[in-house]
Amino acid sequence: MEKKICGAKTRQGTPFKKTPLKNGRCRLHGGKSTGPKNKEKHRESLKGNKNAIVTGEYEIISFDTLLDDEKELYEMIPEDINKQVKGRYKIFEIRTRRLMQRYTVQLEKERPDFRLITRIEEALTRLDARANELIREMRELSPHNTDDNNSLDQLVKIFAKVRDTRKPT
């Protein structure tokens, strides 16, 4: 009896010699995926899938995906920055909260994953920096921001005046 082989072609053009599965190809050459048969069921199965989330720093967050307590938090976050970035600022706050929850879970484990804890801490640092950039940017763009209210700007003006008085004529 002749041994069944996969039948897929190698780069040299010879048949691939692995033992085939029921469909006639080996596990490496199973054929092109036709995708899920029931698209609606597949779509439902993907909702809430958190398998790829490690730290959560880049997790996609929309209002529809927020948990009930997060929606409450979303409504409580102060809105004293410009309307255009208000939502982004709120999402930063929620993302920070989720990272802190993951951090706490790791610390409470009997054998915490310190590599993951370090990654979460680094992600929190980056998130905080981005949130601070956003706030700084909004202060600069705010129509309520005047140079007179900023103590650093006042100091720069004082130095400029002193410099002007010292210039030789």
Rank of each mutant, 00 (worst) to 15 (best):
K4G: 01
I5K: 05
G7N: 02
G7T: 02
A8L: 03
A8Q: 09
A8N: 00
A8P: 03
K9F: 04
K9W: 00
R11G: 09
Q12S: 07
Q12T: 09
T14A: 12
T14E: 14
T14H: 12
P15A: 10
F16C: 15
F16D: 05
F16I: 11
K18H: 11
T19P: 10
T19R: 08
T19H: 10
T19M: 12
L21K: 15
N23W: 05
G24K: 05
R25L: 15
R25G: 04
C26H: 05
L28A: 15
H29D: 02
G30R: 09
G31M: 02
G31R: 01
K32L: 07
K32A: 10
S33E: 11
S33M: 13
T34K: 15
T34P: 12
G35W: 00
N38S: 08
N38V: 01
N38H: 07
K39F: 10
E40F: 07
E40R: 08
E40T: 07
K41G: 03
K41A: 14
H42Y: 14
H42V: 05
R43V: 03
E44N: 08
S45Y: 02
S45Q: 09
S45D: 09
K47P: 04
K47F: 06
G48C: 11
N49Q: 10
K50S: 11
K50Y: 12
N51M: 12
A52N: 11
I53C: 05
I53E: 04
I53P: 01
I53T: 10
V54H: 09
V54G: 04
T55A: 01
G56C: 01
G56S: 04
G56K: 03
E57W: 09
Y58F: 13
Y58R: 10
E59F: 04
I60D: 15
I61H: 05
I61W: 00
S62Q: 13
S62K: 12
F63Y: 13
D64C: 09
D64R: 12
T65F: 08
T65A: 08
T65Q: 13
T65L: 11
L66K: 00
L66E: 02
L67W: 12
L67H: 06
D68I: 10
D68R: 13
D69G: 03
D69C: 02
E70C: 08
K71R: 15
K71M: 08
E72Y: 13
E72D: 13
E72M: 15
L73Q: 09
L73M: 14
Y74R: 04
I77N: 02
I77S: 01
P78L: 00
P78V: 07
P78K: 04
E79D: 11
I81H: 07
